[in-house]
Computed example of a mutant assay.
Amino acid sequence: MQTSENLDALPESARRVALMLRERGHAKPVVMLPETGKTSAEAAAGLGCEVAQIAKSILFRRREDDAPVLVIASGANRVDEKKVAAHVGEVGRADAKFVREKTGYAIGGVCPIGHATTPVTLIDADLFELESLWAAAGHPHAVFNLSPQELAVLTGAPVVDVALRSE
């Protein structure tokens, strides 16, 4: 794994995230995984952590106004769209073009911060059961480490139950 001490070695989108994190006082570096971290399982395997510790960023499209809705969920959870809708209004899936246009990132590298269009954001409450999280840093191979509390401060987002639970 390569860290962001040398910002010039990072892909442009990951470099932007590293600089943004630094500006916001986040001291931990952006890490480049040798293999892709496009899925939570891939990222967890590359980092040697639990899948639950991956703070995956999933973008939805709010139906009433086409606004981007970002849900930052535990990698172990599926997101319950009905629970999301109860907080922000009815949502639908976002395609790759919408994700790139609204976030500035490709799917698999969507960072919780620094979006082209500021999204309505929700954080999965299950993330707060963990001490350490890993989130995408603007590129499918780039991640950064943070605590759930740091995630809440960086995003300013409410912490809610968004996990799909089996009855």
Rank of each mutant, 00 (worst) to 15 (best):
W134D: 03
L33Q: 14
D126H: 07
C111K: 01
H115T: 06
A135S: 13
P148Y: 15
E167H: 05
E12M: 04
A116S: 11
L10W: 04
E167C: 10
E150Q: 06
T39W: 02
V91W: 07
V120P: 06
G75T: 14
G108Y: 11
A157H: 01
P29I: 12
G108M: 06
K97H: 12
A85P: 08
F98S: 08
K102V: 11
L70G: 04
S74M: 01
K82A: 13
R93F: 04
R165D: 02
V120D: 06
E150Y: 01
H87C: 12
F98P: 04
R93C: 02
S57F: 11
L122M: 09
R15V: 08
R93A: 15
F144N: 01
R61A: 03
E81T: 14
V91M: 09
A142S: 07
A14Y: 10
F144Y: 10
L122A: 09
E129T: 13
V17H: 09
D66R: 14
V162R: 05
Q53H: 08
A9V: 08
L146F: 00
L10Y: 02
V84L: 10
M32R: 11
G75C: 11
E131C: 02
I113S: 01
E90S: 08
P119M: 11
A136Q: 12
V153T: 05
A142L: 09
A67D: 13
R100P: 11
L33V: 08
L59V: 15
V143T: 07
V30Q: 00
P34S: 15
L47Q: 03
F144D: 03
N6R: 12
N6H: 13
A136N: 07
I123F: 07
K97F: 10
H115P: 11
H87I: 07
P140K: 15
D124V: 14
I54C: 04
S74P: 07
A85V: 08
W134G: 14
H139Q: 10
A41Y: 09
S40K: 08
R22L: 04
S74Q: 02
M20Q: 11
E42F: 06
A157N: 13
F128L: 05
R93Y: 09
L154M: 12
A14W: 00
L70H: 07
A163S: 11
G48W: 10
M1T: 05
K83C: 07
H141T: 12
V17E: 04
I123P: 02
G114M: 05
N77R: 15
G75K: 07
L70W: 02
K83H: 01
I123Q: 13
S166H: 13
T103L: 09
G109E: 14
A157K: 02
V71W: 01
D66P: 03
